[in-house]
Design a protein around this nucleic acid. Sequence first.
DNA 1: TTGTAGGCGTTATCAT
DNA 2: ATGATAACGCCTACAA
Lengths: 342, 342
Amino acid sequence: MANDNENKSIKMRDVADHVGVSVATVSRALRNPEQVSPAVRARIAAAIDTLGYLPDPAARALASTRSDLIAVILPSVSNNVFADVMDGIYAAAEGTRYSVQLGYSRYSPLSEENLTKLFLRQRPAGIVVTGIDQTDATKTLLGQANCPVVQIMETGPEPYDRMIGFSHYDAARVATAHLIAQGYRAPGFLGARMDPRTQRRLHGFRDELRAQGLEEGRRVHTTTRPSSVTLGSYLLGELLSVAPETDAVFCINDDLALGAMFEAQRRNLRVPESLGICGFNDMEMMGAAEPALTSVRTFRREMGEGAIQMILDALAEKAPASEPVLDLGFEVVARTSTQRGG
Amino acid sequence: MANDNENKSIKMRDVADHVGVSVATVSRALRNPEQVSPAVRARIAAAIDTLGYLPDPAARALASTRSDLIAVILPSVSNNVFADVMDGIYAAAEGTRYSVQLGYSRYSPLSEENLTKLFLRQRPAGIVVTGIDQTDATKTLLGQANCPVVQIMETGPEPYDRMIGFSHYDAARVATAHLIAQGYRAPGFLGARMDPRTQRRLHGFRDELRAQGLEEGRRVHTTTRPSSVTLGSYLLGELLSVAPETDAVFCINDDLALGAMFEAQRRNLRVPESLGICGFNDMEMMGAAEPALTSVRTFRREMGEGAIQMILDALAEKAPASEPVLDLGFEVVARTSTQRGG
DNA sequence: TTGTAGGCGTTATCAT
DNA sequence: ATGATAACGCCTACAA
């Protein structure tokens, strides 16, 4: 039973005295248990428990030139996509000696650079960054970081170290191909924020249209404003007024798709007959909507978990872990909203 | 211009040498600038800039027995309610010398207790916890923490220190009153997770019904499962099969409300005529839905920002800040989904 | 296997 | 206003 008493913070010294060994031994018992005899180890464990000793992370970090922090840099707090990633990250870090230090770049590469400097200064056990569009300075910093570095959310040719994600370009192409396969001949594109990953989806959309011999016309509508359901409704309205021939929309994310669907209902546009709708990410609501909405499923939680696991493996010097780049892929989940029937 | 060179981490010693002063002076220039002559201060600032010096947080924390971390403990990663709170928290911490250390309790008081111990061990500059339902051990720890403590999301009688939130009980009563005022006579209740805050909403619902002389019958449907849109659809189905007289639902959150709405559409139940729907939190999608959904607006971002501001104020020893408990209130946003017309 | 002792980069106390 | 110089709590060679 742990003893939750004594606020006068207990230090390693106290544990050592209590057991009758030196602090060095206690330290070893904690860091390299195999170097200390089972008997002593047990007594130390007991003492730690009864005294309620908790190591001081600052002292540990200072002395070992290595903290137990895993730094994570994400673009956004409020975007539910990253909420899921974080969910995976925290789940994977739970129970390990490492804790997560989160930073938000607000989609700004410069802000990301500052966070990187700040975090690297703490000599983290590992670092997780989003995507591949860092500034040159950040690239340099991460390139020579002396801890595992994992990039998430994307795949690409030159990882700093390791990478886990999927191809946004491919995902968009396949989604677009799905729309076309369903018989839609004038699909439009709704985009918000237009960060690099979103841009790559747009490229995928365009390339697929072209590859299938279709024109995009004036059916690509984007804005740099952050996405929202309301914005989805608005963008669909814009799109339809400029390109009334539009018979389907590929939306950059599920919020826009939901907004587009609501707007279609308001205009008495039948989904999927008159308008096909495809979202991106496949958040939980997509399958629950009426009509159920098609989306591209991405493995957000898995990316978070996988990133931490990669770092843990690297720290444990497990086998060079096969490929440095892990592609988790994606999956078009076809639902009613694009079921036009060829 | 900052100079992004030299990875060989630069320390205070280096900038001291560069300027020709002692490290003590550099330290002062950083912590108590007013104790250093303007001339020297300027030269130090310049040196810091050209050398690209960044202080080591571990060393600083160890020496000062005080870290620049603000610990934040929230129940959930993926719940968008807390995403908004975090948004406010990070926004308010941005630009200060403090950084945020986040922990997730997964709605477990025990987990919250462990996190509290862990975080307190780092001698944080401040700590933010969610709600008022801590374990006794946690209460003790927070009660004697020697840093500002702010509780968010609720109001209550005995804050450890400071508190910013609103009354979930009152919010539920007012929302229920709104349904009744709209002419609904058999409102039901849909709840998920049923954490303490949710329970208080249920109490509010019940008390208001009783106060208005209405019976709740068998119209309260709850589950401890985490909420989702799908679950909202499911719960409405359950509710209607057990209590077909139900003419409105007060949902514990917006996801459930959205799910209920989709389910109503599937059953060709007209909203708001045959079924009134009211959510909770007023997430962005509520106003964008078709029909637009009534909800209880809560000030999530503001709670996050406010909590950090309270801590900053306390650290700056600003005036005792009026009341220790700040009630941000709530607001029933009446939309189409409850517009039955009295 | 265990103990000794120096050092990690800052802060803070005391002088000067 | 500035400079020495002990802490701060732990880790890690090096010794024993």
